[in-house]
Design a protein around this nucleic acid. Structure first.
Lengths: 216, 216
DNA sequence: AGAGAACCGTACCGTACGGTACGGAGAATT
DNA sequence: AATTCTCCGTACCGTACGGTACGGTTCTCT
């Protein structure tokens, strides 16, 4: 049989196991993710786990990589945009961001990575931010560049503009959700928050249509 | 001998032990804080630890409460403020906030609480946010009320204004520091970040003095 | 059909941790 | 001086977890 997995590709069976691992992690945190427990939940043997993922840290890394591989495909736009379309895209980005960050899987993985941050290995935090965040950052960055190119917003420092956008959208919600605070989102308030944040962003970086005066 | 500690007061010896516990926690995360390890580091017996704090969770709670008891005393102002003084107070608040959040002890405790967030007990997260954050929130809230009363800023929703301020100051720094990302602050950039955030906050909530249409 | 690999289920081992028990030392009280 | 209290240091116990080994089963390839 030719090598089916060149380097890091996972067989469907292995992906299935990682999926069960994610469920355990979401349900009970890192403590609930034991090799014996995962083997039982996934109907596989511990021996196979160690064969596939090396050791427990390898398993954790594989979980993060696996989840990150599913997140690809944020909105990406290169064409010219009307002002309204641009604002809608921004609002959509804000909603997506809030939805992702408040998702149980995202919260569980971030808690996992944060819990490992003290150890010197610390590959998990870097992995998570690299695999998960970079895509989001790039999508937003492209969006902001398009908005500037089309004359809807102005900024001198792209990175600063993006971080401001991020801060306006997320505020302290992420950390509070990570701490386990419940009930931070009422039914429709996620969309309202996103909309509100984008309005504030335009107040800071938007160009006045017609005269184009100000910015910070 | 009369009861020296009425209810929750701690003897100097016990506070000393908690201090060593904090050191262990900062140095190596939750995993490094074992009862045996703490007993050795603090030159006390495990029996005493259990006598004083009940069990390990009680110890963790005591650590958080102990640290929170030291943080009191953010700036608090009720008098009338000039515009410049108000801005300086805000900037000072922003610097303090960034300094606290980026402190090793704060990061270690937040990591600890976040790691426990999955368990249903979850007293730690609530405790941390209640003891640590409330003071900060109140100080900032008072400051914003004073600023509105003196006519320097305007807002309809105090809570929304505060959260916007928080988001502008902290952005995604807190989570990234929690994840262990290093080198997020260059030498003087903390002050610059605080200053920048306050400028943006004034752009959003400041009242135009006379006209001053200058910035957004 | 037979050989071999992959894999499951279980048992097993060593370690480390939470929590308890015990002996002994120092200090205060009587 | 005898008693009592607190506390330290150590030893101890049960459990749970990471990691390994092994017999039996299913599937694939020839």
């Amino acid at each position: 049989m030719p090598e089916r997995q060149s380097k890091e590709e996972l067989t469907p069976r292995q992906q299935d196991v990682l999926e069960r691992a994610l469920e355990l992690l979401v349900a009970g945190g890192e403590k609930a993710l034991t090799t014996a427990g995962l083997a039982r939940a996934a109907n596989c043997s511990k021996e196979s786990l160690y064969k596939w993922f090396g050791d427990r840290d390898g398993l954790l890394a594989a979980i993060i990589a696996h989840q990150a591989s599913k997140v690809r495909g944020f909105t990406d736009t290169g064409a010219t945009l009307s002002r309204d379309a641009f604002e809608m895209h921004l609002t959509g980005f804000a909603e997506d961001l809030l939805r992702v960050l408040s998702g149980e899987v995202s919260l569980a993985l971030n808690r996992l990575a944060i819990g490992q941050a003290s150890r010197e290995g610390n590959r998990l935090g870097a992995l998570l931010v690299a695999q998960g965040r970079r895509r989001i950052d790039q999508a937003a960055t492209r969006l902001l560049e398009a908005g500037k190119r089309c004359g809807h917003i102005h900024y001198d420092d792209l990175d600063d503009a993006y971080r401001t956008l991020y801060g306006l959208i997320v505020r302290d919600l992420h950390v509070r959700m990570l701490l386990g605070e419940a009930g931070l989102f009422k039914p429709r308030s996620l969309e309202a928050q996103a909309e509100h944040a984008i309005q504030q962003f335009f107040a800071l970086f938007g160009v006045r249509e017609k005269e184009t005066a100000g910015r910070v």
